[in-house]
Amino acid sequence: MGSQALDYALQRQTRGTFVVRGGEKNYTEHSPLARCNVRSEFLVLTDEHALVVERSPWTMKTEFLNNLPLERGRVELSWPLKIETALSGDYFITSNDDLDVRSYGNTPEESRQNFCEIFEEMLDLYNNSKDEELSGDAIRLKALFDKIIKS
């Protein structure tokens, strides 16, 4: 373990996600190494070349989206969709509770991409369902999905 990194780890708050940069390796984004460290109570670097250089802002991010990039193209939404991306252990979870759509991924970008894909799959699923095929809260969700895309 690099002594500089150890000094950094012991002197500073080390919980959360970190962006790390190594001597021989260059971690330019959230690396498996960085997320592996998050699992511990305190930072333990397992790569002797790694140095913690920056605390990531990716603890939690909330966005309001007016449109979404789907496979069918970018669609305008009837109301701003609040989505949250949060770190949970080793994964990033992106969610919208109103529409009951959630995804996870190894990086915020992967989670966000999965969210858009799952949103579209849920949209198609509910749009192609009849009320009589659904039970309870699923009927409410169908009503929302029927309106969410601006025509």
Binding site: S103, G105, N114, E117, I118, E133, G136, D137, A138, L141
Partner: peptide, 12 residues
Amino acid sequence: KRTSAHIVFSRT
């Protein structure tokens, strides 16, 4: 009938 209780295993 299909309910809203579900789980999605993301493509990871």
